[in-house]
Simulated scan of single mutants.
Amino acid sequence: MLFFFPSSRGSFFSFLEKQKSFSALSCLALLFFPLAIFATPPPPITQAQQILSLKEEEAQQHLPIQIQGVVTAADPSWNGQFFIQDSSAGVFVDSRVQPIPTPGTLLRVTGVTEPGAFAPIVGRPLWKAVGSSSLPPAKSVSIEQLVTGSEDGQRVQVQGWVHSARKEAGQWILALVEGSSRVDLMLPRNFEPPISKFLGAKISTAGVPTPKRMNYNLRRLVSVQLWLSSSDDLRLIQPASPDPRSSPPTPIRSITQYSIDNSPGRRFLIQGIVTFHSGDTLYLSDATGGLEVRLAEEIAPKIGDEIEVVGFPIVERGLPILVDAIFSPTGNQGKV
Protein backbone atom coordinates (compact mmCIF):
# COMPACT_ATOMS: atom_id res chain seq x y z
CA MET A 1 0.00 0.00 0.00
CA LEU A 2 1.35 3.45 -0.89
CA PHE A 3 1.07 6.50 1.37
CA PHE A 4 1.52 10.08 0.28
CA PHE A 5 2.56 12.71 2.81
CA PRO A 6 2.76 16.47 2.41
CA SER A 7 6.25 17.89 2.05
CA SER A 8 6.11 20.30 5.03
CA ARG A 9 5.08 19.93 8.68
CA GLY A 10 2.36 22.62 8.44
CA SER A 11 0.95 20.99 5.39
CA PHE A 12 1.09 17.65 7.18
CA PHE A 13 -1.15 18.80 10.05
CA SER A 14 -3.50 20.52 7.60
CA PHE A 15 -3.69 17.25 5.73
CA LEU A 16 -4.60 15.38 8.93
CA GLU A 17 -7.35 17.87 9.77
CA LYS A 18 -8.86 17.40 6.33
CA GLN A 19 -8.71 13.65 6.74
CA LYS A 20 -10.55 13.91 10.10
CA SER A 21 -13.27 16.10 8.57
CA PHE A 22 -13.66 13.72 5.67
CA SER A 23 -13.89 10.73 8.04
CA ALA A 24 -16.52 12.47 10.18
CA LEU A 25 -18.65 13.30 7.13
CA SER A 26 -18.27 9.75 5.88
CA CYS A 27 -19.48 8.37 9.19
CA LEU A 28 -22.50 10.67 9.21
CA ALA A 29 -23.38 9.67 5.65
CA LEU A 30 -23.13 5.98 6.53
CA LEU A 31 -25.22 6.59 9.64
CA PHE A 32 -28.14 8.25 7.84
CA PHE A 33 -27.96 6.42 4.50
CA PRO A 34 -30.02 3.43 5.71
CA LEU A 35 -32.66 5.83 7.08
CA ALA A 36 -33.04 7.38 3.64
CA ILE A 37 -33.56 3.95 2.11
CA PHE A 38 -35.97 2.65 4.73
CA ALA A 39 -37.84 5.94 5.45
CA THR A 40 -41.29 5.41 6.93
CA PRO A 41 -44.05 6.23 4.37
CA PRO A 42 -46.51 8.97 5.32
CA PRO A 43 -49.65 7.86 7.17
CA PRO A 44 -52.69 7.37 4.92
CA ILE A 45 -55.26 10.10 4.48
CA THR A 46 -58.45 8.96 6.18
CA GLN A 47 -60.91 11.80 5.46
CA ALA A 48 -62.24 13.15 2.16
CA GLN A 49 -61.81 16.74 3.34
CA GLN A 50 -58.06 16.16 3.68
CA ILE A 51 -57.92 15.13 0.02
CA LEU A 52 -59.85 18.21 -1.15
CA SER A 53 -57.59 20.49 0.91
CA LEU A 54 -54.48 19.47 -1.04
CA LYS A 55 -52.91 21.83 -3.55
CA GLU A 56 -52.37 20.53 -7.08
CA GLU A 57 -48.65 19.88 -6.54
CA GLU A 58 -49.38 18.09 -3.24
CA ALA A 59 -52.00 15.83 -4.83
CA GLN A 60 -49.45 14.89 -7.50
CA GLN A 61 -47.31 13.19 -4.83
CA HIS A 62 -49.66 10.16 -4.80
CA LEU A 63 -50.17 10.20 -1.04
CA PRO A 64 -51.82 7.03 0.33
CA ILE A 65 -55.58 7.08 1.03
CA GLN A 66 -57.81 4.90 3.21
CA ILE A 67 -61.36 6.22 3.55
CA GLN A 68 -64.81 4.82 4.20
CA GLY A 69 -68.04 6.42 3.07
CA VAL A 70 -71.30 6.06 1.19
CA VAL A 71 -71.69 6.26 -2.59
CA THR A 72 -73.67 9.41 -3.40
CA ALA A 73 -73.57 9.43 -7.21
CA ALA A 74 -72.78 6.91 -9.94
CA ASP A 75 -73.95 6.44 -13.51
CA PRO A 76 -73.36 3.73 -16.14
CA SER A 77 -71.92 6.34 -18.51
CA TRP A 78 -69.08 7.03 -16.04
CA ASN A 79 -67.33 3.70 -16.79
CA GLY A 80 -67.01 2.67 -13.14
CA GLN A 81 -66.29 6.08 -11.61
CA PHE A 82 -68.35 7.39 -8.70
CA PHE A 83 -68.54 9.84 -5.80
CA ILE A 84 -68.19 8.83 -2.17
CA GLN A 85 -68.90 10.95 0.91
CA ASP A 86 -67.83 10.48 4.52
CA SER A 87 -68.56 12.64 7.56
CA SER A 88 -66.15 15.33 6.34
CA ALA A 89 -66.85 15.76 2.60
CA GLY A 90 -67.46 14.08 -0.74
CA VAL A 91 -64.76 13.15 -3.26
CA PHE A 92 -64.49 11.64 -6.74
CA VAL A 93 -63.15 8.08 -7.08
CA ASP A 94 -61.51 7.33 -10.43
CA SER A 95 -62.47 3.66 -10.47
CA ARG A 96 -62.70 1.57 -13.65
CA VAL A 97 -64.23 -1.51 -12.07
CA GLN A 98 -67.57 -2.78 -13.34
CA PRO A 99 -70.27 -3.07 -12.21
CA ILE A 100 -70.25 0.28 -10.45
CA PRO A 101 -71.52 0.53 -6.86
CA THR A 102 -74.97 2.03 -6.46
CA PRO A 103 -75.82 5.10 -4.36
CA GLY A 104 -76.34 4.11 -0.74
CA THR A 105 -73.59 1.46 -0.77
CA LEU A 106 -71.08 1.80 2.06
CA LEU A 107 -67.52 1.33 0.76
CA ARG A 108 -64.01 1.03 2.10
CA VAL A 109 -61.68 2.63 -0.46
CA THR A 110 -57.89 2.67 -0.73
CA GLY A 111 -55.86 4.53 -3.33
CA VAL A 112 -53.58 7.51 -3.83
CA THR A 113 -54.13 11.21 -4.31
CA GLU A 114 -54.25 12.68 -7.80
CA PRO A 115 -54.92 16.30 -8.83
CA GLY A 116 -57.88 15.47 -11.09
CA ALA A 117 -59.11 17.74 -13.88
CA PHE A 118 -60.70 20.22 -11.46
CA ALA A 119 -60.39 19.08 -7.82
CA PRO A 120 -58.21 16.46 -6.08
CA ILE A 121 -59.48 12.88 -6.45
CA VAL A 122 -58.85 9.29 -5.36
CA GLY A 123 -56.67 7.62 -7.98
CA ARG A 124 -55.69 3.94 -8.47
CA PRO A 125 -58.55 2.90 -6.19
CA LEU A 126 -59.44 -0.47 -4.75
CA TRP A 127 -62.82 -0.65 -3.06
CA LYS A 128 -64.88 -3.12 -1.09
CA ALA A 129 -68.56 -2.94 -0.15
CA VAL A 130 -68.99 -3.22 3.61
CA GLY A 131 -72.72 -2.52 3.94
CA SER A 132 -75.36 0.03 3.07
CA SER A 133 -76.27 3.44 4.44
CA SER A 134 -78.72 6.27 3.97
CA LEU A 135 -77.40 9.17 1.92
CA PRO A 136 -75.82 12.01 3.91
CA PRO A 137 -77.92 15.12 4.60
CA ALA A 138 -77.85 17.57 1.70
CA LYS A 139 -76.32 20.98 2.35
CA SER A 140 -78.62 23.82 1.26
CA VAL A 141 -76.89 26.13 -1.24
CA SER A 142 -77.88 28.56 -3.99
CA ILE A 143 -77.41 27.73 -7.66
CA GLU A 144 -75.12 30.76 -7.82
CA GLN A 145 -72.89 29.11 -5.21
CA LEU A 146 -73.09 25.82 -7.07
CA VAL A 147 -71.67 27.22 -10.30
CA THR A 148 -68.54 28.49 -8.52
CA GLY A 149 -67.42 24.86 -8.19
CA SER A 150 -66.80 25.06 -4.44
CA GLU A 151 -69.43 22.36 -3.82
CA ASP A 152 -68.03 19.94 -6.41
CA GLY A 153 -68.73 16.37 -5.32
CA GLN A 154 -70.75 17.34 -2.23
CA ARG A 155 -74.35 16.29 -1.70
CA VAL A 156 -76.31 19.56 -1.85
CA GLN A 157 -79.86 20.85 -2.03
CA VAL A 158 -80.93 23.66 -4.37
CA GLN A 159 -84.18 25.21 -5.52
CA GLY A 160 -85.23 27.14 -8.59
CA TRP A 161 -87.59 27.32 -11.56
CA VAL A 162 -87.69 24.60 -14.22
CA HIS A 163 -87.17 26.34 -17.56
CA SER A 164 -86.81 23.43 -19.95
CA ALA A 165 -86.80 19.65 -20.26
CA ARG A 166 -85.04 17.48 -22.82
CA LYS A 167 -84.12 13.83 -23.21
CA GLU A 168 -80.61 12.76 -24.19
CA ALA A 169 -79.42 9.14 -24.45
CA GLY A 170 -82.51 7.95 -22.59
CA GLN A 171 -82.06 10.38 -19.69
CA TRP A 172 -84.25 13.37 -18.83
CA ILE A 173 -82.45 16.65 -18.14
CA LEU A 174 -84.19 19.63 -16.53
CA ALA A 175 -82.75 23.15 -16.67
CA LEU A 176 -83.12 24.71 -13.21
CA VAL A 177 -82.79 28.50 -13.00
CA GLU A 178 -82.36 30.89 -10.10
CA GLY A 179 -81.90 34.51 -11.16
CA SER A 180 -79.09 34.56 -13.74
CA SER A 181 -77.64 31.20 -12.61
CA ARG A 182 -78.65 27.80 -13.95
CA VAL A 183 -77.78 24.14 -13.58
CA ASP A 184 -78.79 21.01 -15.49
CA LEU A 185 -80.54 18.38 -13.36
CA MET A 186 -79.54 14.88 -14.47
CA LEU A 187 -82.51 12.72 -13.51
CA PRO A 188 -82.26 8.97 -12.78
CA ARG A 189 -82.26 7.02 -16.03
CA ASN A 190 -85.28 4.90 -15.16
CA PHE A 191 -87.43 7.92 -14.23
CA GLU A 192 -90.08 9.37 -16.54
CA PRO A 193 -91.01 12.75 -15.01
CA PRO A 194 -94.38 14.42 -15.56
CA ILE A 195 -92.95 17.21 -17.71
CA SER A 196 -96.14 19.26 -17.81
CA LYS A 197 -96.14 19.29 -14.00
CA PHE A 198 -92.53 20.49 -13.68
CA LEU A 199 -92.12 22.90 -16.61
CA GLY A 200 -92.45 26.41 -15.19
CA ALA A 201 -92.75 25.14 -11.61
CA LYS A 202 -90.53 25.97 -8.65
CA ILE A 203 -88.91 22.87 -7.21
CA SER A 204 -86.37 21.78 -4.62
CA THR A 205 -83.95 18.96 -5.32
CA ALA A 206 -80.86 17.25 -3.91
CA GLY A 207 -77.91 15.73 -5.72
CA VAL A 208 -74.18 15.82 -6.39
CA PRO A 209 -72.76 18.61 -8.61
CA THR A 210 -70.14 17.72 -11.21
CA PRO A 211 -68.47 19.72 -13.99
CA LYS A 212 -70.45 19.83 -17.23
CA ARG A 213 -67.96 21.84 -19.25
CA MET A 214 -64.34 22.56 -18.32
CA ASN A 215 -61.39 24.61 -19.50
CA TYR A 216 -58.93 21.77 -18.91
CA ASN A 217 -55.81 23.82 -19.65
CA LEU A 218 -56.69 26.33 -16.92
CA ARG A 219 -58.50 23.83 -14.62
CA ARG A 220 -61.52 26.13 -14.63
CA LEU A 221 -65.19 25.26 -14.42
CA VAL A 222 -67.46 26.55 -17.20
CA SER A 223 -70.82 25.01 -16.30
CA VAL A 224 -72.28 22.53 -13.79
CA GLN A 225 -74.72 19.64 -13.73
CA LEU A 226 -76.43 18.09 -10.70
CA TRP A 227 -76.84 14.30 -10.59
CA LEU A 228 -79.87 12.97 -8.72
CA SER A 229 -79.75 9.47 -7.24
CA SER A 230 -83.53 9.09 -6.80
CA SER A 231 -86.76 10.61 -8.07
CA ASP A 232 -87.61 11.15 -4.40
CA ASP A 233 -85.07 13.98 -4.46
CA LEU A 234 -87.52 16.13 -6.48
CA ARG A 235 -90.02 18.18 -4.48
CA LEU A 236 -92.59 20.62 -5.85
CA ILE A 237 -92.59 24.01 -4.08
CA GLN A 238 -94.84 26.10 -6.35
CA PRO A 239 -96.93 24.73 -9.23
CA ALA A 240 -96.40 26.02 -12.74
CA SER A 241 -98.54 28.88 -13.99
CA PRO A 242 -101.21 27.99 -16.60
CA ASP A 243 -99.97 27.13 -20.08
CA PRO A 244 -99.91 30.46 -21.97
CA ARG A 245 -101.02 28.73 -25.17
CA SER A 246 -104.51 28.60 -23.72
CA SER A 247 -104.68 32.43 -24.02
CA PRO A 248 -104.07 34.94 -26.85
CA PRO A 249 -100.44 35.93 -27.57
CA THR A 250 -98.92 38.74 -25.51
CA PRO A 251 -97.81 41.82 -27.50
CA ILE A 252 -94.01 42.17 -27.48
CA ARG A 253 -94.26 45.64 -25.99
CA SER A 254 -96.02 44.23 -22.91
CA ILE A 255 -93.21 41.80 -22.00
CA THR A 256 -91.79 42.55 -18.50
CA GLN A 257 -94.29 45.38 -17.94
CA TYR A 258 -96.19 45.39 -14.66
CA SER A 259 -98.71 42.63 -14.11
CA ILE A 260 -100.10 41.26 -10.88
CA ASP A 261 -99.55 37.77 -12.32
CA ASN A 262 -95.79 38.19 -12.90
CA SER A 263 -93.49 35.62 -11.29
CA PRO A 264 -90.05 34.15 -12.15
CA GLY A 265 -91.75 31.01 -13.46
CA ARG A 266 -94.32 32.69 -15.68
CA ARG A 267 -94.10 31.86 -19.39
CA PHE A 268 -95.29 34.05 -22.25
CA LEU A 269 -96.71 33.25 -25.67
CA ILE A 270 -95.43 35.59 -28.38
CA GLN A 271 -96.42 35.63 -32.04
CA GLY A 272 -94.35 37.45 -34.64
CA ILE A 273 -92.30 37.45 -37.82
CA VAL A 274 -88.74 36.07 -37.84
CA THR A 275 -86.41 38.92 -38.85
CA PHE A 276 -83.09 37.26 -37.94
CA HIS A 277 -81.89 33.78 -37.03
CA SER A 278 -78.49 32.37 -36.03
CA GLY A 279 -77.94 29.18 -34.02
CA ASP A 280 -80.30 29.20 -31.06
CA THR A 281 -81.02 32.94 -31.29
CA LEU A 282 -83.65 34.69 -33.36
CA TYR A 283 -85.44 38.03 -33.46
CA LEU A 284 -89.19 38.42 -33.72
CA SER A 285 -91.21 41.44 -34.69
CA ASP A 286 -94.89 42.23 -34.25
CA ALA A 287 -96.94 45.41 -34.57
CA THR A 288 -95.71 46.67 -31.17
CA GLY A 289 -91.94 46.05 -31.37
CA GLY A 290 -89.09 43.57 -31.66
CA LEU A 291 -87.76 40.89 -29.30
CA GLU A 292 -84.66 38.70 -28.97
CA VAL A 293 -85.55 35.04 -28.44
CA ARG A 294 -83.14 32.32 -27.27
CA LEU A 295 -84.43 28.88 -28.12
CA ALA A 296 -84.13 25.80 -25.94
CA GLU A 297 -82.82 23.91 -28.99
CA GLU A 298 -81.14 24.95 -32.21
CA ILE A 299 -83.68 24.83 -35.02
CA ALA A 300 -84.03 26.56 -38.35
CA PRO A 301 -87.13 28.71 -38.88
CA LYS A 302 -86.84 30.79 -42.01
CA ILE A 303 -86.57 34.55 -42.01
CA GLY A 304 -89.97 35.93 -42.89
CA ASP A 305 -91.95 33.07 -41.32
CA GLU A 306 -94.61 33.83 -38.76
CA ILE A 307 -94.14 31.68 -35.65
CA GLU A 308 -95.29 31.38 -32.06
CA VAL A 309 -92.79 31.03 -29.21
CA VAL A 310 -93.31 30.20 -25.54
CA GLY A 311 -90.56 31.12 -23.11
CA PHE A 312 -89.41 32.87 -19.94
CA PRO A 313 -88.67 36.62 -19.93
CA ILE A 314 -85.46 38.06 -18.51
CA VAL A 315 -83.93 41.53 -18.75
CA GLU A 316 -80.43 42.19 -20.10
CA ARG A 317 -78.99 45.65 -20.69
CA GLY A 318 -82.42 47.08 -19.92
CA LEU A 319 -84.17 45.08 -22.67
CA PRO A 320 -86.49 42.05 -22.38
CA ILE A 321 -85.33 38.72 -23.81
CA LEU A 322 -87.30 35.48 -24.04
CA VAL A 323 -85.15 32.48 -23.01
CA ASP A 324 -85.53 28.69 -23.05
CA ALA A 325 -88.19 29.19 -25.69
CA ILE A 326 -89.90 26.59 -27.84
CA PHE A 327 -91.49 27.54 -31.14
CA SER A 328 -94.15 26.35 -33.52
CA PRO A 329 -95.08 27.70 -36.96
CA THR A 330 -98.45 29.39 -37.47
CA GLY A 331 -98.67 28.32 -41.10
CA ASN A 332 -98.10 31.83 -42.42
CA GLN A 333 -94.76 31.90 -44.22
CA GLY A 334 -92.79 34.52 -46.10
CA LYS A 335 -94.29 37.57 -44.41
CA VAL A 336 -91.17 39.69 -44.98
Score class of each variant (00 low, 15 high):
G10V: 08
K18N: 09
K18Y: 11
K20L: 14
K20T: 09
S23N: 11
S26M: 13
L31T: 12
F38L: 11
A39N: 10
A39E: 13
P42E: 12
Q49K: 15
I51L: 13
A59Y: 01
Q61V: 03
Q61M: 09
Q61A: 10
H62D: 13
P64F: 06
I65S: 07
A74K: 01
P76D: 08
N79M: 07
N79V: 04
G80M: 06
Q81K: 11
F83A: 01
Q85A: 15
D86W: 10
S87H: 15
F92C: 03
D94G: 05
S95A: 14
P99D: 05
P99K: 08
G104T: 06
L106F: 08
T113S: 09
P115Y: 01
I121D: 01
V122R: 02
R124A: 13
R124L: 10
K128N: 13
G131I: 08
S132A: 12
S140D: 13
L146R: 03
V147P: 01
T148D: 08
D152H: 09
Q157D: 11
Q159W: 10
H163R: 14
G170L: 06
L176S: 05
E178Y: 04
E178L: 02
S180E: 13
S181W: 00
R182K: 12
L185H: 03
M186F: 07
L187E: 01
L187K: 00
F191T: 00
I195W: 10
K197V: 04
L199T: 00
A201N: 02
I203D: 02
T205K: 00
P211T: 01
M214P: 00
V222W: 07
V224G: 01
Q225K: 10
S231F: 11
D233I: 00
L234S: 05
R235K: 15
R235I: 07
A240Y: 08
D243M: 02
S246T: 09
T250D: 04
P251M: 04
R253Q: 09
I255D: 02
I255C: 05
Y258E: 03
S259R: 05
I260E: 15
N262Q: 07
N262P: 00
N262W: 06
P264S: 02
L269R: 08
I270W: 03
Q271K: 13
G272I: 05
V274T: 03
T275D: 14
T275N: 14
F276P: 05
T281G: 07
S285R: 15
T288Y: 09
G289V: 04
G289I: 03
L291S: 03
A296C: 07
E297C: 04
A300N: 14
A300Q: 14
P301A: 06
K302M: 12
I307G: 06
I314P: 00
F327I: 06
